[in-house]
């Protein structure tokens, strides 16, 4: 049998628990933990929870952003960036001085790179050709 991935566990849990409430929910979670024990997957618990969070966010249309800038960003700018990517946006901000200037936005599996560091790098490449 092929191995079940963390993502598959998380998705299964999400589907089962979606419409449950109260004691039914506790029962479902108990059964799920028992399945994890049976499959020796308990130590993957944290990863499965993280995966579950991602699944829930995706299902409810929440977009996760990771904004990296060289200096602390103004609240207003952060808001503006969030607006550009949709309504339901959760943003984490980071400060990384090595990018010199500009910002980098990470969106799921994509990075929008507008940092001065990357632009200098491509300028260097263009000049050396």
């Amino acid at each position: 049998m092929a191995k079940t991935s963390n993502k598959q566990y998380a998705e299964a849990l999400y589907e089962v628990t979606q419409d449950l409430k109260g004691s039914d929910l506790s029962d479902a979670i108990k059964t799920f933990v028992e399945i994890l024990v049976r499959d020796h997957k308990l130590k993957q618990g944290y990863n499965i929870i993280a995966e579950f969070e991602r699944t829930v966010k995706k299902a409810s249309g929440v977009v996760e952003l990771e904004i990296t800038s060289a200096r602390e960003l103004d609240k207003k700018i952060v808001e503006e960036i969030k607006q550009t990517f949709g309504k339901n946006v959760e943003a984490v901000t980071q400060v990384d001085e090595s990018i010199i200037g500009g910002i980098k936005v990470k969106l799921e599996d994509k990075i929008l790179d507008g940092s001065v560091k990357t632009q200098l790098k491509s300028l260097k490449q263009q000049l050396s050709n």
Binding site: K106, D109, K110, I111, L112, D113, G114, T118, Q119, S122, L123, Q126, L127
Partner: peptide, 16 residues
């Protein structure tokens, strides 16, 4: 000339 011809673009990178 080369530097002024350089276009600032936002690069989209796919990552893992």
């Amino acid at each position: 000339k080369n530097i002024s011809a350089f276009e600032k673009t936002v690069e989209v990178e796919e990552v893992g």
